[in-house]
Design a protein around this nucleic acid. Structure first.
Lengths: 154, 154
DNA sequence: CTAATTGGGTACCATTTTAGTCCTGTATAA
DNA sequence: TTATACAGGACTAAAATGGTACCCAATTAG
């Protein structure tokens, strides 16, 4: 399915929730309630997002979580990487040399290009877009063009 | 990681192998050897590809597998779907109504658009491209543009 | 007709990944 | 000082994944 893990899904929802109220500090319990998900799991997700530098946390009473930077500067790729690690379709899309089948594989190069195109797409979608109720209206085609190009015809 | 499953990876490699010799019939054992992967696993993968209509099989002596249609008419999305099911980033990207969190989620619509963009990208990459040693040079930007623009409601 | 070849289907097991929980520690504010 | 709230890690349960084995069905060569 090329699916995101459930935690990643949660992360996106929670981040969007925070992004809609950027000035407040959000406690884990409050977010879990707002989003209707189990508290400990949301908490775990939040910790990962902090570790990835997407959120900042404040301990103690009145503490909670805030965005580490504006929603427009946090991308879908950032969120996915925070939970699942680097966006890559295959093992060999991220690191070289750790696939001893490279010789017989024959598709590695092109798979990597596809992978890169997807990563670029995900980098062009920001949290601000995700949190918005309006459809994404981004010049998504630009980065894609850059990568895969030399554009033939339609 | 947004990673493909290992079987999907195998499927792509095996399909590419067949695509490079489209006129011959390829026995599972031969392919497994060529690709340096365990026979039973390759066999399993081949069966899935047949069921998905991407390969045709011929039993008996001199039998084996052939492409069901030209490599240029088989897409990366086809191969991924054959092994993992429909390409979708989240549960709700594929079917409506089976997510009771839709109300509190708030990102579903835009996630679906991203998902659609990725699917379109994968549909624009064919087996012929993957099997080729030359870099992909496809007008990938066209479909993306189409999607992410004014995209109506869900 | 028979035997050899080759795919088809199914069931099963091992491993890994994922998700979720809990506990204990630490920082902060009232 | 006490209640609040995050930090970190260990642990468990469940599910997906990958891999194997076994037997059946079809086809072709001799």
């Amino acid at each position: 399915m090329l699916k995101l893990s459930r935690l990643t899904d949660y992360a996106a929802v929670v981040m969007a929730q925070i992004a809609r109220h950027p000035h407040a500090s959000h406690a884990a319990a409050e977010l879990a309630e707002a989003v209707q998900l189990p508290h400990p799991t949301v908490s775990k997700t939040l910790k990962m997002l902090v570790r990835a530098g997407l959120l900042e946390s404040q301990r103690g009473a009145q503490g909670g979580y805030r965005l580490a930077r504006p929603a427009s500067q946090i991308t879908a790729a950032d969120i996915i990487s925070a939970i699942e690690g680097p966006v890559a379709m295959t093992e060999c899309s991220q690191a070289e040399g750790d696939c001893e089948l490279a010789a017989t594989c024959g598709v590695a190069d092109n798979w990597q290009r596809v992978s890169l195109a997807i990563r670029t797409l995900l980098e062009s979608v920001t949290l601000a877009h995700l949190a918005d109720t309006a459809p994404i209206k981004l010049p998504v085609q630009l980065p894609i063009q850059t990568i895969s190009l030399s554009a033939a015809s339609a």
